[in-house]
Design a binder for these strands. Structure first.
Lengths: 144, 144
DNA sequence: ATTTAAAACGTAATATTTACGATTTACAAT
DNA sequence: ATTGTAAATCGTAAATATTACGTTTTAAAT
């Protein structure tokens, strides 16, 4: 997914094309990593000082619905990132310090033989957590 | 893991053997499914009316540390279940309505060839979510 | 330009988790 | 059995994350 694609999804689905939404898309595009609602608000408030949480959460939910961002949760917080890679199903290596990701081209669901009985599958999650090289350095050599 | 095993872990690690902890272990053993802190408190308050959240959360963290329960989070809540299956690494099918699980004997990490560069892996998660047969019935035929 | 439904504001409520001083209790040493 | 002590729990409050709502503003169609 690219910037234009995301903006077109907004238009195509008939949602209003506000400056804030455009900016929100840009934030996710530029960062291309998992962000918490708080982090998103901080970025947005640089341009829109009085921006409220209501707007953030409402639009995060909307963006997730229409496929502009994908979400997950770790360490008790829900986190969102720009949908990467067109429509192909994928998974992530995630740095739990900065939220940066690397795509994994393996899906464990392919190894599940047949459908389980008496169980309707609605989704699955495969994520590898760790520390990326730049965060590893930061931790080893704390800033002073 | 069985009931005795869990109680012995407590003793072996030198933690005090209180009635509440014994009861907590029993709750997890009996339910053998994922429970939220709120659910655990409800079960416990049947026997200990005035029990506080502090005690619940403190002991959940302890139990997770010493390997009596394992934890995950979904729908914005952290959930805990009795450690199933001795020491063997495993994953779960999880009913997101009742928390019941089924063990999966496939681990996607085996399919990851070699270690990724510039990334220290600290953990991973593979979970399949869905609705178990009894919850499916409950949803289809709402109680009146 | 006017209209209108959607979006955002400002603020409050809810839910979950964590924290802390005071009190009680399990366990060991006497 | 009694006593001493560190750990566990209580009661309550604070911190954090998320959701809700009436009012006002705004994008976009008429």
């Amino acid at each position: 997914m690219d910037l234009q694609g995301a903006l077109e999804i907004l238009k195509r689905n008939g949602y209003k094309y506000t400056g804030k939404r455009k900016r929100l898309v840009e934030v996710f595009y530029r960062e291309s990593r998992y962000l918490s609602a708080k982090e998103v608000l901080d970025y947005m408030q640089a341009d829109y000082p009085g921006l409220s949480f209501d707007t953030i959460y409402r639009n995060l939910a909307l963006f997730e619905d229409i496929g502009i961002v994908e979400a997950t949760e770790w360490q008790g917080e829900r986190r969102y990132r720009f949908c990467c890679g067109g429509d192909e199903h994928h998974h992530h290596l995630i740095c739990t310090f900065c939220g940066k990701t690397r795509t994994i081209h393996v899906c464990p669901m392919n190894a599940i033989l047949g459908k389980p009985e008496d169980f309707d599958i609605t989704g699955h999650k495969f994520e590898i957590y760790g520390t990326c090289s730049s965060c590893k350095t930061d931790v080893a050599v704390p800033k002073m």
